[in-house]
Design a protein around this nucleic acid. Structure first.
Lengths: 143, 143
DNA sequence: ACTTGACTTAGAGTTACCTCTAAGTTGTAT
DNA sequence: ATACAACTTAGAGGTAACTCTAAGTCAAGT
């Protein structure tokens, strides 16, 4: 069973050692042992680090992650509560994805808008009175 | 052509008036006129507010949104640059969605894990030596 | 023995994005 | 005329999540 220093873990998880110490201070890594004052990470700790990463990446605040960690530590009595947290998080992700897809549409419109404008050499092509391509610049009404 | 106070706009856009003033201070709303020192929003301002919202919702920092706004103000010379910003943002969103979907899988596993554990009444069902369902509690090796 | 480099701590600083406060002004309703 | 709500400003305060600093400890290599 391997042992790892903080910076080995940091590299593996793609965060800084500073950040891991910060997580530890915030109570997110209560299982980490210390030898001569130094943190020693074990193979089985990576499972939790992966969960931590997953919750963080999906936007859960560190405080809630800590609360989840505390529930895990309490054992079987908290199974339902933990399931609920995961179900909520899944719902939150689904909502996020929907929102991103919706905003993507707006972006796609903008991309089309700029592509057309670049073709025409000017953004004015999109203003109301320019929609008629037969209209020459000097024929465009002032307002 | 309608005119709107800051709090009308705030409600319509789902942000606080405080926040709109902050955006103005940060240079994100350079077009807003003032009458007697008070901001007056016009119908056409909502188009930009929608774009602002879209970029913000998809994670663009306010500074970059401001930069984009400045490019818009400069006119046709910046069309290519603005197209590029939109293309980059689209790519960023796509990456975000992929990442969320990936993390969703981890979450789905956890949901399954807790559902099984709740069925069994204990999380121990998932530990290695419990994978054999014919094994009775008193037959489980100690370590 | 000494240097090197990774580790430790408490705590200060940073960035992004608000969020609020205080003191004052203005427009509208009664 | 007066009250009242909504607006204004500059600037302070807040929160999340780092990020860094200073001063020190420890273990391994030469």
């Amino acid at each position: 069973m391997g042992k790892y220093t903080i910076s080995e873990v940091a590299e593996k998880m793609g965060v800084s050692a500073h950040t891991l110490r910060y997580y530890d201070k915030e109570g997110l890594l209560p299982f980490v042992e210390k030898v001569n004052g130094r943190r020693v990470f074990k193979d089985e700790d990576f499972a939790w680090l992966r969960v931590l990463n997953c919750l963080k990446k999906t936007g859960m605040p560190l405080k809630e992650i800590r609360r989840y960690q505390e529930l895990c530590a309490k054992g079987d009595d908290t199974l339902e509560e933990r399931l609920q947290i995961m179900l909520n998080q899944k719902a939150a992700i689904e909502e996020k994805i929907e929102l991103l897809k919706l905003n993507m549409k707006e972006l796609d419109y903008k991309i089309w808008y700029y592509q057309k404008a670049i073709e025409a050499g000017t953004e004015k092509i999109h203003s109301e009175h320019m929609c008629n391509p037969t209209l020459e610049p000097d024929e465009i009404p002032d307002s």
